[in-house]
Write a protein that binds this DNA or RNA. Structure first.
Lengths: 183, 183
DNA sequence: ATCATTCTTGACTATTTGGTCTAGAATGTC
DNA sequence: GACATTCTAGACCAAATAGTCAAGAATGAT
């Protein structure tokens, strides 16, 4: 009935993820997005709305792709301890090899925009809550197999791990040699 | 010999600290600074140079005032454990009562500008290194009084605490109820 | 093949950005 | 009090910003 889009939405969205991830929200101009996404201004606005809406869509995409992949590591048959160990090893690998120390889009967005934009804050909170829940469920497995003391407050432990994760992602942006930051 | 400044440099610098702290580098316009610092455009440029140089000066000021105050907590006669406990209690209090969840200027700057501006990265690294060293020295006290096992790698422990601090500051920006984030 | 639809394209606009400059006022020294 | 100096004040500028729009091209349904 009409002319179809010439670009793949998810494909260019991934380019937008990369751009915001590397530069942050404020430092990314529409021009940057146009160039990196490889589509023209008009198409961008037609397909994704304004910068703010695109950014929120980008956050969703990041959660569905990057965060999801991490959550899958925790959601396994292995022991919680092993899963959590694997999780952090992957994050560190991710931070190290993810090109120029760009950290994590969620963490970056929390710090840069969490205060000024409630919509961003909400999406960031969702990601963080999902991670915390992933830790919690992993810990629960260990408690059910008596690998973990029944008295331990798993919610507190999960929050503790989430906090450590955020710290690691910040340190990862500071230290050029991330191995130094490890232990 | 010449007309003296009508404003106190440190006083208006503190206003600049507040502004960058609350809004971040990119989101802060010269106009914001002019309004918040209460001096006029020309005076601002004459006294502090351009935006980038002002920001670096602001980082120094923050380190000398805010970070210094925190370091003093660690540098005490009390046991390392007590000092570190006091330290984190203060940080949390600081994050909670510091107005609208603005976190820590160093952490914020690390995330927002660490990648794109080497000068900022350097100043951020200095702050983080100072904090790590503060932890290290506190731990060293406990090792000398045999409160802490001689076998422990204090440098690793200090880095671990530094990482936790960063995580706490990020979580503090996300959670509207910081007590939730505590344990 | 025609037509309605929706795409792409790039020029366009109003606003805001960081930064400069000139004019005039206030000061300390002589 | 006169002068050199350095302040304040705010108009000014070029460039970049986010976002719009109109014209033409490509498509699918008929």
């Amino acid at each position: 009935m009409s002319r179809p889009r010439e670009f793949d939405v998810e494909e260019v969205l991934d380019k937008a993820v990369e751009t915001f991830w590397s530069k942050g929200y404020e430092a990314t101009s529409i021009q940057d997005l146009v160039e990196n996404m490889g589509i023209h201004r008009g198409s961008l606005y037609a397909a994704f709305g304004d910068k703010q809406r695109l950014f929120l869509t980008v956050l969703d995409r990041y959660r569905k792709v990057v965060v999801r992949k991490l959550l899958d590591i925790l959601d396994t048959d292995a022991s919680g301890k092993a899963a959590i160990r694997h999780f952090f090893a992957t994050v560190i690998e991710h931070v190290i090899t993810g090109g120029p120390l760009r950290g994590c889009l969620v963490t970056n967005s929390a710090v840069e925009r969490g205060l000024s934009d409630p919509d961003t804050a909400k999406k960031v909170s969702l990601c963080v809550a999902q991670l915390e829940d992933g830790f919690y469920k992993a810990l629960l497995r260990d408690q059910s197999t008596c690998e973990l003391d029944n008295q331990r407050d798993l919610r507190a432990l999960a929050r503790y791990l989430t906090c450590n994760l955020q710290g690691l992602l910040v340190i990862g942006k500071i230290r050029s040699d991330p191995l130094q930051a490890l232990e």
